[in-house]
Design a protein around this nucleic acid. Sequence first.
DNA 1: CCAAAAGTGTTGGGCCTACACCCATGT
DNA 2: ACATGGGTGTAGGCCCAACACTTTTGG
Lengths: 169, 169
Amino acid sequence: MPHLEQLGVYGEPGRDPRGRVITVAHLAIAPRLPEPTAGTDAAAAGWTPVDQILSGNVTLAFDHLRIVRDGVERARSKLESSALGTAFCTEVFTISELQQVYEAVWGTPLDPRNFYRKVQSIPGFLLEDGPPRRTGNGRPAKTYRSGPRHDLYPPMVRSADGPADRGAE
Amino acid sequence: MPHLEQLGVYGEPGRDPRGRVITVAHLAIAPRLPEPTAGTDAAAAGWTPVDQILSGNVTLAFDHLRIVRDGVERARSKLESSALGTAFCTEVFTISELQQVYEAVWGTPLDPRNFYRKVQSIPGFLLEDGPPRRTGNGRPAKTYRSGPRHDLYPPMVRSADGPADRGAE
DNA sequence: CCAAAAGTGTTGGGCCTACACCCATGT
DNA sequence: ACATGGGTGTAGGCCCAACACTTTTGG
């Protein structure tokens, strides 16, 4: 269940010193994408982990950092209200595998027990899959596959586990 | 404190039968706007109340209804997280005047007592203004002016008063 | 038996809706 | 006095973070 949406339009005069350029940025969320090919897609092309960009280890041209920041924020909040996260698991998965996806995208550790209940409490989000068994170490986990519901209610919330950090001044 | 933001880009092929047209829609939120002048702004120009449009009493060309719907929804949620509503009051206002703004935009009645506390509980949202006095009928209300805080936390929520209506299936 | 992961129960606090109630004014 | 709106107190409910605890596996 890949996803493509309009992220926004960036048209400030002067964002590109060579002249007036309008960028319509799109956000794609999809698992296991192929390596882009330089020469067909662009002169040079490749994937870069976002933390490389956000931490400043990799520098972007013009206002591209801002665009990336907007995109990452949008992707993070997309996980809250949609079932997109399941696409990054194998077709049948355990709840802790799904949790790893959320932790990776949000960059926060989550309490497994509360996460466990949270996802189960959203009707239509997850479907139990056959015999409850499987795993590496410790007790076998029930297995699930993605359910019919694509828009989550109640939404997952980033502050769901770990102390809420209020943005108050 | 007027507000202008990028609403979105509408570029579906076929949205205008005369050819490929890309619209970059913007949302402006501002009080007491002047009447637009036909001939300078466009061949014909004027204001139309949104309920006229949303109720179908006024028909729009192409996909313009969808754009309006998107814009109204954005404006509504903007009130939740920003102090923009105060701009539609006079510089000094009472809390119930502010409430009327929220009720008009959201199209919902709100409980005055809970609204009263809610707005007061948001730090930096409202500033008390001089002697607590003034009003038409009944007890005089304290007066306020807009505070320094533009992004509200905690946000106002549409379900804040009146029973929450959960969107669960 | 011990470690480790899965899953369950429970408690305490915060926030919110609803509503009873008091306050200050106009008529 | 009484109607009208302003403003305060509070009870019950829901949700959630935190954490104790049980279950089921591998070593």
